[in-house]
Computed example of a mutant assay.
Amino acid sequence: MNRLWLFLPLALAITLGMVLYFGLGQDPSKLDSALVGESVPDFQLPLLQTPEQQVGSEVFSGKVQLLNVWGTWCAACRVEHAQLNKLAEQGVPIVGLNYKDERPAALEWLEQRGNPYSTVIYDPEGSLGFDLGVYGAPETYLIDTEGVVRHRHVGVVDQEVWESDFKPLYEEYRDDS
C-alpha cells in the first residue's frame, strides 16, 4: 500500500498537465455565448451623451448592427477604436456599450478619438454586460434585424477579424432582411 502513495504525485502531475494542455490550447476569442441565437436581454439604461434619455432592447430592432462593449480603462479598446471608426465610415451601424466606466472619461474618449457609434449605452454598473455574459472589454456582437445575437467575438476587432468573422455574417443577415 505504501508503494501506491509514491505514484500519487506522478498521477497528480499528469492530471494537471492534461488540464493545462487542453485549457491553454483554447482560443479565448472563440468563447461560446449562451446568447447566440437568443434575443438581446431586455434592459433600460441611459444614453452616454444624454443621461436623462433611457434606451432599451428596441435599439437593436430593424437593422443588422454591431454591439461593441468598450471602456476607457481598456487598453485593447484603444487598439480597436480606429477599426470601428473605419467601419462606421463604411456605413456599418455600431451601438456602443460603455461598460463599467466614468461618464466624463468616456465623453472625452469619444471627443478625442471620434465616435463610431450610432448610439452609446451607458452601463456604469455592468448590468447589461452581466446579462450578455461579458468577460471584459472589448467584446463585439453581431445583432440581426430582430434583435437576435448571431455572433460574438472576444477581443479586438481588427481588419482581419472583420473580414473573416463578421463581414460574411453581416452581409448574410443584411441580405435576409
Rank of each mutant, 00 (worst) to 15 (best):
N2A: 12
Y170V: 11
T145W: 02
G56Y: 06
V95K: 01
K86F: 07
S127P: 01
T119I: 14
G114F: 13
L20S: 11
M18E: 01
A105G: 06
L4Y: 14
Y122C: 01
T50C: 00
D176F: 03
D123E: 04
R3F: 05
G91K: 05
H81T: 09
P168M: 04
Q159E: 15
G17H: 08
T119M: 09
P124M: 06
L24R: 09
V148H: 05
Q54R: 09
V148S: 06
L97R: 02
S118L: 07
V161P: 05
R150M: 00
V55S: 07
E160H: 14
L169D: 03
Y122N: 01
N2Q: 10
G56A: 03
A76D: 04
K30H: 04
L97W: 01
D123K: 08
G23E: 02
D158W: 13
F7A: 15
F130C: 00
V40I: 06
V64A: 05
Q90V: 04
Y173W: 09
T140W: 00
A34T: 12
R152K: 15
D27R: 11
V161M: 02
T72H: 07
V69D: 01
R150G: 01
T119P: 04
T119R: 09
D42H: 07
R113V: 10
Q159N: 12
F43P: 09
G17I: 09
G62P: 12
L110K: 06
Y122W: 05
P93T: 08
S57K: 04
E171T: 14
V157M: 06
L47D: 02
L110D: 03
F130M: 03
L142T: 11
L10I: 15
V149S: 06
G96K: 03
I94Y: 05
S177W: 11
P168T: 07
G126V: 13
L20K: 05
S177G: 15
G126M: 09
Q159A: 15
R103H: 07
Q112Y: 03
A137P: 13
G155S: 07
G114H: 08
D158K: 11
T50G: 00
G114R: 07
D27W: 02
H151A: 15
